[in-house]
């Protein structure tokens, strides 16, 4: 009887220690933590800026354009960047949460960053048909990065994102990123409008009759005339 209790205790101890070990070993980054834990699915929600007027959204966007989506792909996003001396914002404690920490703490953060894998993202190729704001020419294309997608058997579902669809035309309010050389919407719910041409067809070639439909829940209506007026304020 006593021996059986000892065996039970020993097995229990091994189980507890192994679980604790697993927990300690779990990486603190999303993708790596998911992989080590055997998780294949994750859901993400994000806190984005909210715009109360089209003018407000216009002012915050680097690019406002109409474009046709000609293809999509999924990939891993770049992980978080640790600022180094000389980088813009390095010595700003608000922009750099590691600024002022001990060398040991910074080294730990860097080691962690090396293990970090970026989020799964979907990249849409957008061929530009009309530029309202920004230094882009008609006929060029931009890559629009959206959070979430499926990659190598893993799924990241982004609650706030409505994915851009191939062969559709959109009006897009975008933020351009110098470091990733791509763009993201200023707000995933407010930054995209389906562009519709004459007769209700996709506005694949820009026309004076194009209209723009906001996503459900977006109260900001906008017309071609509004955009032309806003463009005068550039």
């Amino acid at each position: 009887m006593k021996r059986r209790h000892l065996v039970t205790l020993a097995v229990g101890a091994v189980l507890v220690l192994s679980v604790a070990g697993c927990a300690r070993g779990a990486s603190p980054t999303t993708a790596v933590a998911m992989e080590q834990a055997g998780a294949r699915e994750a859901v993400v929600s994000a806190d984005y800026p909210n715009f109360t007027t089209a003018k407000d959204m216009w002012d915050k966007a680097d690019l406002v354009l109409q474009a046709n989506i000609t293809g999509t792909r999924t990939t891993r996003d770049k992980p978080s960047k640790i600022l180094e001396p000389g980088d813009e914002g390095y010595d700003d404690p608000k922009a750099n949460p590691l600024y002022g920490l001990s060398a040991e703490d910074v080294a730990k953060a860097k080691k962690l960053a090396e293990q970090e894998a970026g989020d799964i993202v979907t990249i849409a190729k957008a061929d530009v048909t009309r530029v309202f704001k920004g230094d882009l020419g008609k006929g060029t294309s931009v890559e629009v990065r959206q959070l979430g997608g499926e990659l190598d058997g893993e799924t990241l579902t982004a609650r706030d994102e409505v994915k851009l669809e191939q062969n559709k035309s959109y009006l897009l309010f975008l933020h351009a990123w110098d470091d990733t050389q791509d763009t993201t919407m200023v707000n995933p719910g407010q930054g995209q409008y389906v562009a519709v041409g004459p007769g209700g067809r996709a506005a694949t070639s820009a026309s004076e009759d194009d209209t723009y439909s906001p996503l459900p829940g977006n109260q900001l209506q906008i017309s071609l005339a509004d955009l032309k007026e806003l463009a005068k304020t550039n």
Binding site: A46, D47, Y48, P49, K81, I82, L83, R145, M185
Partner: peptide, 8 residues
């Protein structure tokens, strides 16, 4: 962290 995203 520092991410290339409009989100907070």
């Amino acid at each position: 962290g520092r991410y290339s995203s409009s989100s907070y």
